[in-house]
Design a protein around this nucleic acid. Sequence first.
DNA 1: TCAAAATTCACTGAAAACAGGGGGTGTTTC
DNA 2: GAAACACCCCCTGTTTTCAGTGAATTTTGA
Lengths: 214, 214
Amino acid sequence: MKYNLIIVDDHKMFLDGLLSILYLEKEYNVILTAKNGKQIAKYIEINKNEKIDLVITDISMPELDGISLNKIIKKNYKNIKTLIVSMHNDPEMIENLIKNDVDGYVPKNAEKQELLKAIKTILNGEKYFSKQIKDIHLNTKLAKKREEEIKLTQREIDVITLIAKEYTTQEIADKLFLSKHTIESYRKNLITKLNVRNLAGLTKYALKMKYIKQ
Amino acid sequence: MKYNLIIVDDHKMFLDGLLSILYLEKEYNVILTAKNGKQIAKYIEINKNEKIDLVITDISMPELDGISLNKIIKKNYKNIKTLIVSMHNDPEMIENLIKNDVDGYVPKNAEKQELLKAIKTILNGEKYFSKQIKDIHLNTKLAKKREEEIKLTQREIDVITLIAKEYTTQEIADKLFLSKHTIESYRKNLITKLNVRNLAGLTKYALKMKYIKQ
DNA sequence: TCAAAATTCACTGAAAACAGGGGGTGTTTC
DNA sequence: GAAACACCCCCTGTTTTCAGTGAATTTTGA
C-alpha cells in the first residue's frame, strides 16, 4: 500500500528536485503537484474520497499561501498530514503554523535524508521539526515571555505611536482630547517602562513593535 | 562540443531540481556541484586549464556567498560566465552583482523555460536578467537619484547615528571631541535637510538608512 | 466585589531640544 | 580665483522633554 502525496510549490525547479528525490522511494506516490494552494484546496474538496496522506507545501505562493492552505486542511481534513518545506524562517509564520497544528517543518536547505526522515515520521503519526525550526520556536517563546513583562496598555500605544510620528506633546494631547500633562505622564512612564532614554528610544520601540510603518 | 557548467547552491533539493532540468539538455555538461562558493573557488583555482563556461549560483550560502563568488570569478577568470539563481531580490544585492559584471539573474520561481533561455543567452555572450530583476534595478536607480538630492556628509551621518542611539547632545559632543554647539548646529541642519520635525524623525531616518540596527 | 490596573490630571524644576541668526577655516571644482 | 562644500563654533530666545511626586476616577479581572 503506497502513501499518496501532494506537493505544492511555486518554484518549478524546486518541485523537480523534490520529485526526483521522492521518485526513488517506492512507497510514495506523488498524485499531484501544483504551483499554489488554491489548486490543491479545490482538488481536495472535489476528491473527498481519495486517500491523501500528506501535503508537502512551501509557504510563499501566489493565490493561496502555505499558511492558509495548512489552516484549511487542518480544519476540514483532519487525516491529511501537512509538511512545510520552506526557506522562510520567519518566527511569526512558524508560530502561526504550529498553532494551526502543522505536522512538520523542514527548511529548504535540509539534506535529502532529513526530508525523507520528516516524511516518514509524519506518516507514522508523529510531528517532525528541524532543529533550526525548533530553536526559532523556543526563542520566540522566550522572547514573547520577555515582552509580556513589559506590556503596554492601549492608551500607551496610542501615545507612543503619535510620538513616533513626530507629533509634539501638545499636538498629541489635542488629537486624543487629553491634557498636555497627561501625555507628559504617559511619555514619562513609557520611558521608564521601556527602559529607554528619550524620544529616539521610544521611536525605535514603536518601529520594532510595528506601531508605525517605516 | 558540450558546455561545461558548475552549479552552486546550499539547498540540496534545489540542486537536484536544477540537475534534473539540465540533465535533459544534451548540450550541457554539469561538471561539478557544490554547497558553497569556497569549494568552487578552490576548484577553479586548481583546474585553471579546464574549460568552464558557466557557473550557476545561489546568493546566500555558508562560507562564501554568491556575491563574493561572482566577484572572484569576474576578477580572475574573465571567460567564465556567471548566472545567479536566487530568491533574494534584495535591491542592494542586485546592484552589487551588476556592478561586478554578473551575466544574468533569474529568480528561483522562474519557469524551467526561462532558466534555459537565460543559460542559452549568456553562453551566447549576452546578458540575461528576468523582468522582475530589471524592474528592481530600475527602481533602485530612480530611488538612488532621489536620495542623492538629500545626501548627508560623513559628519552628519556620525551625528544622526549617535542621536538615534539615544545619546544627548552633550554626550555626542564628548564622543566626537566637538563642541556642544557644533552638534546643535548639525542637529538643526539635519532637521531642515531631512524635512523632519524632531528626534523621532531623525531616528526614523537613521533606521531607514540603516545607520543603526533596529 | 474589591483590589489592582488603567486612565486621567497637576505641579516643580532642571535639562535638553528647537528656531534663527551669526561667523570662520580649508578643500575641491568649475 | 570665486563658488560650492564640508566642517567647525557661538549666541539668544523659546519650547519641549525629562524626572519626580502625588492624586482622583474608571475599568477590569480574579
